[in-house]
Design a binder for these strands. Structure first.
Lengths: 334, 334
DNA sequence: TCTTAATGTGGTATCATTACCACATTCCGG
DNA sequence: CCGGAATGTGGTAATGATACCACATTAAGA
């Protein structure tokens, strides 16, 4: 039950192993007919070259490590995470790379363990680069030590490659859309800036964009919630109970927007516009039909893997930092 | 930027590379103090052994190939597939294995391509075994050629190792439960036996179990649907419009059961019992509260990986075929 | 005809590691 | 105090593939 090697093929074909290797590599000189013979022999013997030996020899494994923090939060449903995964996989297929799932970092808060494992992974030659999806904030610095061989997905870090959604311009797009529709008083259902780092820049973008469109900038129209549906409902109730209530509500997540829509329905206020961010599957249902910004999760995964593979091929090109635009999906809610 | 090898460590510690190797392997004789010295040197030099070289040398890579057919069907939501994945991953972590994602088989119907890729994977030494999750029926024979190195998950095949849910005994459990509750006329919302191979044995189990409990076996109480919610609603309407309608309905999937519950609500029939199979997240919501059989997806993944690793370690032990029991989850619907 | 270039071919070092063998030293019991 | 076991140690082959070098053969050009 020995494995057939390049030597076996050479022997069977009656040539030297160098010839077989050259046929395999497709470079160097080799007679056309011998090439045919070798190819035929390889097929007949069911020969498959050993990636281990090749990798050892030229330290090039065509393999990416994948460190996927699959999160159990309502903000990032399984559906989305699968999209990221699909994007990564497709990019790898296209570039003929394989993915090694790295089973390490059991305790997501153990920074030291993560640092060690990350270093180990990048040191042993099995993987050329490392894709890190959804890492908790605390672990991100761990990867900063290896720029050029690591790419983050759905996260950002200045000195690393990454692919992330451009929440700021998405917010701008929503405000612009509502402004064009004639709304002048906009409310914002925000996430807690303490708990989510993207909440602050989004809020800034909201304010900045209001100014850009010459709209009123009223701190009382911003409500701090927690990204959940119940929080959206509560926030909407609060905003609409103000003396001068908003005519349109921007929710930081679809879940909040759905909560807000529920509040509207209960209050009997059909005319208030609501927009969200995410495009969860629920948003497309006819009962909800939410106007929202679609997060490009598939593209995040794809471009991160693609970018990492490219920059591994030509190091020195610098980091690949993709801020992917979100897509405005207009439905009935605004 | 050369990698530090076992030779570098040996040189730095002033011993031969054999000593370092023995320390690494933990076998053979080596002086306690030298061992300490070597260990210290390894730490200081940040040495990590090369799995490639080791794998090449002793053809033992501690890696499993994963071929995951992530399906886009309502019957098997992302949530479940993630559970399988988590189970596989946990087993691998526990046994110190890694997972190589194999990017092949793009066209799920191309049996020849699948066969070639499968053979290639098992031939090149990168992976010791192959986990195949949710393969389409047409591809299953491809893997039969390599028993002992392949395990199926959520599928069955007589001459392969597998982990699957025991649908038959789940059906028995549901009938027994309803019988104990005093129901004597049971309806079955079945899947199409043509399209799903598990529909037929489930139906047989249903009939057989009716007999076992001395209940009426009436072919008109079996309705053929397609596993979807709408189909469940339609089927329930049909069964309840019979002259002698059932007092309890067994649905082949939770989706069908949910459809049946909707039919009951619309018809104003609150007393008819409904049970499903799956335990989808929706089933636990208070509005639905469905009594159902939970599919052990996590355990399927875990036990398949665990079994495969074990049987790789001791070949000749025969196949590992796990039929995992489903768990009855009693809620309000029955 | 004689150089120079193009086309082929086979041998060998190399990659990082481990298993095995040969050899050295210590230790202990008779 | 001597033989053999126990404890250590270093050298080397082997794993499968590729790059490079040296060498052979042919072709072409002057």
């Amino acid at each position: 039950m020995k494995t057939t090697t390049i030597v076996d093929v050479a022997k069977a074909a009656g040539v030297s192993l160098s010839v077989v290797s050259r046929v395999l590599m497709g470079r160097g000189y080799v007679q056309a007919e011998k090439k045919e013979l070798v190819l035929k022999t390889m097929r007949e013997m069911d020969y498959h070259p050993s990636p281990l030996a090749k990798g050892l020899r030229d330290s090039h494994t065509n393999t990416l490590g994948l460190l996927f923090f699959w999160l159990h939060t309502p903000f990032l449903p399984d559906y989305y995470q699968r999209e990221i995964f699909a994007g990564v996989l497709d990019a790898c297929v296209a570039r003929n790379y394989q993915l090694l799932i790295n089973n390490f970092v059991r305790d997501l808060t153990d920074v030291e363990a993560a640092r060690f494992d990350c270093k180990r992974m990048l040191k042993d030659q099995r993987v050329e680069g490392l894709l890190v999806v959804n890492p908790p904030e605390a672990l991100i610095p761990v990867f900063s030590g290896s720029p050029g061989r690591v790419a983050l997905v759905n996260r950002r870090e200045e000195n690393l490659s990454y692919s992330d959604a451009d929440h700021v311009s998405a917010m701008r797009g929503l405000v612009a859309y509502l402004a064009k529709k004639g709304h002048v008083r906009l409310g914002l259902l925000s996430g807690d800036p303490e708990r989510d780092s993207s909440a602050r820049p989004r809020r800034q973008a909201f304010n900045q964009c209001l100014r850009a469109h010459g709209l009123a900038e009223d701190p009382s129209l911003i409500w701090d919630g927690n990204f959940l549906e119940s929080s959206g409902e509560e926030g909407a109730r609060h905003l609409l109970s103000l003396q001068d209530p908003p005519t349109a509500i921007v929710a930081s997540t679809d879940l909040m927007a759905i909560g807000a829509l529920r509040a509207l329905r209960k209050l009997g206020l059909a005319k208030v516009a609501v927009v969200g961010i995410d495009d969860v599957p629920l948003a497309a249902t006819p009962e909800i039909s939410l106007t929202t910004m679609r997060q490009p999760f598939y593209e995040m995964g794809r471009s991160a893997a693609e970018g990492l593979i490219s920059s591994l091929a030509s190091p020195g090109d610098g980091l690949v930092q993709n801020l992917l635009p979100m897509e405005l999906i207009v439905r009935n809610s605004a």
